[in-house]
């Protein structure tokens, strides 16, 4: 993409052809999957999509915004609860409820940010976790959504099961594509420059005219929106929610794992990381405790020897960024 021909000597990284064509191929296969795939795989795809969107958001927040949150499960759970509450109590179809729940979650993030943003660094991490616990305990005391034992999604009663599964799948697919596209476009925009600058040095960014506080708030709200979307999708697909499942810190732990394996602060990171996580989860999760010990061990090894993750490793070996957001200078 050449930006403004009167400034001809500067070009942006061309939009990457290979990944885009692979993406189109993937999309073609994926869109038609309900017609040839098994219901099990559809369900599996929806679940992993939720992990993926959640991890993309954690990467945006921590990898680009420098806000290491351990409390994103607050928004995941809220998204889930919103979609179930709207469905069960107001009769809103969960298919419409999913995006609505995401928006409501983002609105909730505004007051919560007032609390979280009083803290920095490690304190921010702990603080966000505490906020998530407070949200969990609050929800567990609301009897209309089942209190501590949770509730089931009844809004789908009377909806054909196959139709429901296909619709949920397509919504998940749309959400995945939209998440990747939005983050890519955002990071390639002028605001994306500011976000990368903040990631590298907050002090310098603000001394260069970047409104760091507003930018971080925007990222926090967008991340809440995405986490809410992932949660809404997950619980609309799984039909049952409880405070312990919805607000479990494991959600964020898995997201951190995915991003660390894939490469923090890189847009390809969560894509690669989710795939690795899915492989491990799919084939090794029967090993129970050993599976979790293995995940932890792998994360430690990665953070010691491959800090920039698999995406960073590939970049170092091939010199290529597959979803590049770089601006390249070419002299006259």
């Amino acid at each position: 993409m050449t930006v403004h021909t009167q400034h001809i000597n500067m070009t942006r990284t061309p939009l990457p052809i290979l990944p885009i064509s692979l993406g189109v191929l993937f999309l073609g296969t994926a869109i038609t999957m309900p017609f040839w795939g098994q219901a099990y795989w559809l369900h599996e795809f929806v679940n992993i999509s939720c992990f993926f969107i959640f991890a993309m958001m954690w990467n945006l927040l921590a990898g680009y915004g420098g806000m290491v949150s351990v409390g994103q499960q607050a928004f995941f759970g809220l998204g889930g609860y919103f979609v179930l509450a709207m469905g069960n109590l107001a009769g809103v179809s969960p298919f419409i409820g999913i995006p609505l729940a995401a928006i409501l979650t983002a609105i909730m993030a505004l007051p919560l940010s007032k609390l979280a943003f009083r803290l920095n660094g490690g304190y921010f991490a702990i603080g966000t976790w505490v906020i998530a616990e407070v949200v969990r305990l609050t929800v567990a005391n609301i009897s209309i959504v089942g209190g501590g034992s949770g509730t089931s999604l009844t809004a789908f009663r009377g909806v054909d099961r196959v139709f429901r599964q296909h619709m949920t799948y397509w919504i998940a697919l749309t959400c995945v594509v939209a998440t990747v596209a939005l983050i890519l476009l955002f990071l390639r925009s002028k605001q994306g420059l500011a976000l990368q600058a903040i990631r590298d040095s907050e002090v310098a960014a603000s001394s260069q005219g970047v409104d760091v506080i507003r930018m971080k708030l925007a990222v926090y709200v967008v991340a809440a929106l995405g986490c809410g979307l992932a949660g809404a999708l997950y619980f609309a697909s799984n039909l049952r929610i409880s405070p312990d499942a919805a607000f479990s810190v494991n959600w964020t732990a898995f997201a951190i794992f995915i991003v660390m394996i894939g490469g923090v602060g890189r847009i390809e990171g969560p894509i690669i990381g989710t795939f690795v996580f899915w492989l491990i989860n799919h084939y090794l999760s029967d090993y129970g405790t050993w599976y979790l010990i293995g995940l932890g061990g792998l994360a430690i090894v990665m953070s010691l020897y491959m800090k920039d993750g698999l995406a960073g490793f590939i970049h170092r070996k091939t010199g290529k960024d597959f979803l590049s957001i770089k601006r390249i200078y070419r002299s006259k």
């Binding site: 002028k190 420059l193 590298d200």
Partner: peptide
Amino acid sequence: PFGNMTVFENLITAACF
């Protein structure tokens, strides 16, 4: 410096904002 950005990107960020 914005360490993970290029020299050029450092400068356009400063000019933009």
